[in-house]
Design a protein around this nucleic acid. Structure first.
Lengths: 346, 346
DNA sequence: ACAGGTCATGTAAAGCGTTACATTCGGCGT
DNA sequence: ACGCCGAATGTAACGCTTTACATGACCTGT
C-alpha cells in the first residue's frame, strides 16, 4: 500500500495479465464472467483507479473540452456553461473553463491546451477568434481546418471564420424589441450598447437602427450610449441620457444588467418606470423577471445554446465531420412591467 | 505537414536531439543561446505545440484542479469560481469544473478524476465529502491522508473530516444579523432556511436561534420555514408566513435569492418593505445592492474565499505539506433599505 | 601539458495503460 | 479422431515527452 496501485498490481492479484484487466474494465463483454469477477474483486481490494494520463496518451484523446468565457462571474455565461456542462456529461466529456476577463493572455494558454492535445476541442463564448486560426479564405479553408482542433462558437458569430456556430439572430431580436417600443407610441428611443468592439453589440445596434429607420424615426446624436454590460455602466449611461435636452421616453439596453442600472438611475432622478420612461433589456437573466418592476426583455435560450453547441462538438469529435452552417436559435420578446405605452409628451 | 508535429520533427529540423529541444523549451537557461535560437526557429516553423498527455504522464502532474460545485448557474458560486480561477492561473493551474446539480452521480466521476491523476487536487464547494474519503479518525487520519489526493473545502466546513478549509463563521454572522434585527426593536423574527441537510443551513439557523435565545425571545412554531435557496422558494415560504396568525415583523433569509422572493411575496400581499416587514438576506450577491429596495445582507468575501482556497491548494501541491486548521474569513453586515425599525405592532 | 572540472548535449530509460497480434484451449463438424 | 474455428487470454509494442546519466569538448590551474 505504498504508492498508488498500478494495473500490474491488480493483474498480479487477480492472476491475469494487465491486458485482461484493461479489457475487463473497459470492454467487459470480451472477458469471461469469472475473469471479470476476479478482476473486479482485485480492483476493489486495491482501490485501483487507473491512470488517466497514461490512458489519454495511448488513446490520444482526453474527453475534455476547453470553454473560453469572458467572465464566469457573469450570470449570463454561467447559465450557458451549465447547459454545456450537462450535455458534455451526457456525452462523457468534461469541460475546462478558461476565464479571459482578468487576463486576455489566458486565451492563448487555453488555445494551447487544445493545440497540445490537453483537450479535444474548444468552445468559444467570448466572440474572439483563437490566435492560431486564420480567417477562412476560400479553398484552403478546408485543408487548413483538417489539422486544426475542432472549434465551436456560441452566442456570437465570428465573421470571416467558418467555425460551426450556435447563435441567435441578434439583429432581428433587437429590431423586434425596438419595433415593439415604437408600436407603443415611443418616438424618442435611446440605446445603451455594450462595448463597441463587441460583435454582439454591433449586431444589436444594427437591429435598433434598422427598426428606427423602418419607422422613419430620426437618430438624434447622443441617443446611442456605450456601456460595458455592467449595472454600473447602465446607471451612468442613463444618467447622461436624463441630462439631455430632449430626454428619451424609452431605452433599449443591450443586456439586462444595464437595464437594471438604467432603472436605478431613472428612479434616482425621481422619475418612474414605465410611467415616465420605458426600459427594455436583453437576455432575460433570472433576475429580470424578479426585479421591481419586472423587466421587459429579449429571452435567449441560454441553456439550449450551450447544449446545442456541446452536442455539435461531440458530433464533430465522434464523426470527424465538420458539419457546416450556423444553428440559429429562436428568441422571444418577454413583455413585463418595465415597458408600456408612451406617456403624454413632456 | 501531415499530422501534428512531434518533438522529433523539431529536433531533426533544428539539428539537435529531442532532449535538447525539451530543455530549450522548458529550461532555457541550460542551453546555449545559439541552440535556443535554432530550436525556437524550428518550433515556429513547424508550429510545434508539445503534447500535454505525454508531458503529464512523464511529470506525473496535470496542473489541473477539479472544482466540485453544486450549481454553476448560481451566481454565488460563479463568483467564487472566478476567484479560484484567477488564483489558479497565477499559479499555473487550470480548473476543471464539475457541476453536481443535475446529477449527483457526477460527484463520483469527478472524484475519480483526482484519483486517476487526471487532476492534481480537488476543491469542494458543495459541502459533501468525496466518496473515497473516510471521516478522520484520530491517529490513522494522517496516514490515510498521505495517499489521498489533496482536497480543500471552501465555504462550508465538513464536520468529521479534517480537510483544510476556508470558510466564514456562519453561526456568528447569522447571530449578528438576527441581533441587529432585535436591536431595531423586532420581536417577531422568522427565518427562511436553506435545505435542511445542508451544513450551512444548520449553522445559520444555529446563529439565528442563538440570537433569539440571548435576547430571551421565544421561537414560535412555524417561524422557521425551509426553502431551497431559490427565489421561488423564498416567495412561497414568505406566503406561508404572511398567512400566520401572528405575522412576523422581520425575516432573516439564509441567502439573498430567498430574500428577493420574500420581498416579492410581501409586496404581492400589499405590504411594504421595510415599512411593514424588514428583510435580511445573506451573501451580498451583486443584485442585492441593486434591488429595489436594496437588500440588507451579510457580505461574504466570495472572491477572497476562492482565492484563498486555491492558494492553499497550490501550497499543498508545491510543498506536500498539509497545513491544517481552518481559515475563517470575516463577514460584514451590509445595512441597506430592506430593513429598519419595527413599525407599530399590528 | 595534463588532470580535473564545468558546461552543453546526446542516449536511453522510464512513465502507465491499451491494443494489435500471437497463442492456447476447447468444442464442434465431418 | 482430426482439423478447423472461435473465444479468451497473454505478449509486447506503442503513444510522446522528460530527465538521470553518460559523453565529449573545452577550459583552467599548476
Amino acid at each position: 500500500m505504498g504508492s498508488t496501485t498500478k494495473i500490474r498490481d491488480v493483474a498480479r492479484l487477480a492472476g491475469v495479465s494487465t491486458a485482461t484487466v484493461s479489457r475487463a474494465i473497459h470492454h467487459p463483454a470480451v472477458v469471461t464472467k469469472e475473469t471479470r469477477a476476479k478482476v473486479d474483486r482485485a480492483v476493489r481490494q486495491t482501490g485501483y483507479a487507473g491512470n488517466a494520463m497514461a490512458r489519454n496518451l495511448r488513446r490520444m484523446e482526453t474527453r475534455m473540452i476547453v470553454v473560453l468565457v469572458p467572465n464566469i462571474g457573469n450570470i449570463f455565461f454561467s447559465e450557458l456553461l451549465s447547459g454545456i456542462e450537462t450535455t458534455a456529461a451526457d456525452n462523457g466529456y468534461s469541460i475546462l473553463i478558461g476565464d479571459t476577463t482578468s487576463d486576455p493572455g489566458r486565451a492563448r494558454v487555453f488555445a494551447d491546451y487544445v493545440r497540445g492535445a490537453q483537450a479535444d476541442g474548444m468552445i468559444l463564448l467570448d466572440g474572439k477568434p483563437p490566435y492560431f486560426a486564420a480567417p477562412a479564405s476560400g479553398l484552403d479553408g478546408q485543408a487548413a481546418a483538417a489539422n486544426q482542433p475542432p472549434v465551436v462558437v456560441l452566442s456570437e458569430r465570428l465573421p470571416g471564420y467558418d467555425f460551426p456556430t450556435v447563435c441567435i439572430d441578434n439583429v432581428a431580436a433587437a429590431r423586434g424589441a425596438t419595433a415593439y417600443l415604437i408600436g407603443q407610441g415611443h418616438r424618442a428611443i435611446a440605446h445603451i450598447t455594450g462595448p463597441l468592439e463587441n460583435i454582439l453589440t454591433a449586431e444589436r445596434r444594427r437591429g435598433y437602427r434598422a427598426a428606427l429607420h423602418a419607422a422613419g424615426l430620426p437618430r438624434p446624436p447622443g441617443y446611442e450610449v456605450t456601456g460595458d454590460f455592467s449595472i454600473r455602466s447602465g446607471r451612468l449611461a442613463m444618467a447622461g441620457l436624463l441630462a439631455m435636452a430632449r430626454r428619451p421616453t424609452a431605452i433599449f439596453c443591450s443586456n439586462d444588467e444595464m437595464a437594471i442600472g438604467a432603472i436605478t438611475a431613472i428612479r434616482a432622478a425621481g422619475l418612474s418606470v414605465p410611467g415616465d420612461i420605458s426600459v427594455i433589456g436583453f437576455d432575460d437573466i433570472q433576475f429580470a423577471g424578479c426585479y421591481d418592476p419586472p423587466i421587459t426583455t429579449v429571452r435567449q435560450p441560454r441553456r439550449l445554446i450551450g447544449a446545442t453547441g456541446m452536442a455539435l462538438m461531440a458530433d464533430i469529435l465522434a464523426h470527424k465531420t465538420v458539419a457546416g452552417g450556423d444553428r440559429v436559435l429562436p428568441t422571444e420578446l418577454i413583455l413585463r412591467a418595465s415597458s408600456g405605452k408612451v406617456s403624454a409628451a413632456p
